[in-house]
């Protein structure tokens, strides 16, 4: 088998891998931020519900959750494996992202809220204008970690039949008999993706940094 075609076949899976990540990561962020706000500012019942959600979703291996969500979700609506897988990963990630954002909110000092209320801002205004902007800055570093995890976990959708990097490596490995080179190629591609994303997010963090005297 031609080496160039071999690598190319696996490389084509990158589109799917990035696609899954592009759906899962932002949906996880939006849900996670919403849940975090409920967990920090919600009433007692809401706080308990959020805590339960977080504990359960983070206590089960992602692949198990993925299969459950896929078969539950696709029982109702007819979604392709790509969308079902990506959204499911997003839901799973939301539990982890909720914890990240929650931690970031709590690390913004209580005094900020107090000062905001003191000039007449409502609680909602304070959350949007004062707490969240600082929260999101605090959240970038751990979030970069979660982004890397999602890129890697995107490989789990191979079980649903999405032709992403890992599945392609399996297929071409089987047909060529060269399993090790196939998996090594896959590993290299994942590594490159994770490396690039960490770098990019590092740049973003620097750009958003609030100036201070050393």
């Amino acid at each position: 088998m031609d080496v160039a075609n071999f690598i190319k076949y696996i490389l084509q899976g990158t589109v799917y891998t990035l696609g899954v990540t592009a759906v899962a990561l932002p949906s996880g962020l939006i849900l996670g931020t919403l849940f975090a706000l409920l967990a920090v500012y919600g009433g007692k019942t809401l706080k308990q519900v959020m805590s339960l959600y977080s504990t359960v979703m983070r206590g089960i291996p992602p692949i198990v959750l993925l299969l459950i969500l896929y078969f539950v979700m696709s029982g109702e609506i007819n979604l392709s494996p790509f969308w079902a897988g990506s959204i499911s990963l997003g839901i799973i990630s939301s539990a982890y992202q909720m914890e990240i954002v929650r931690g970031a909110i709590l690390s913004v000092s209580a005094g900020q809220m107090m000062a905001a209320r003191a000039i007449g801002l409502t609680r909602m205004q304070a959350i949007i204008n004062i707490i969240l902007p600082q929260t999101l800055r605090n959240a970038i570093a751990p979030w970069s970690n979660e982004a890397a995890i999602i890129i890697k976990d995107s490989s789990l959708v191979y079980a649903l039949g999405v032709p992403e990097i890992l599945r392609r490596a399996q297929l071409i490995g089987a047909s060529s008999g060269s399993y090790l080179p196939a998996y090594l190629t896959a590993a290299l591609i994942y590594f490159a993706l994770v490396f690039a994303s960490s770098r990019l997010l590092g740049l973003l963090e620097k750009k958003l940094e609030i100036p201070a005297n050393p």
Partner: peptide, 9 residues
């Protein structure tokens, strides 16, 4: 406030 509590961002 004693600790100023300016909005850091």
């Amino acid at each position: 406030f004693q600790n100023f509590l300016l909005f850091n961002h």
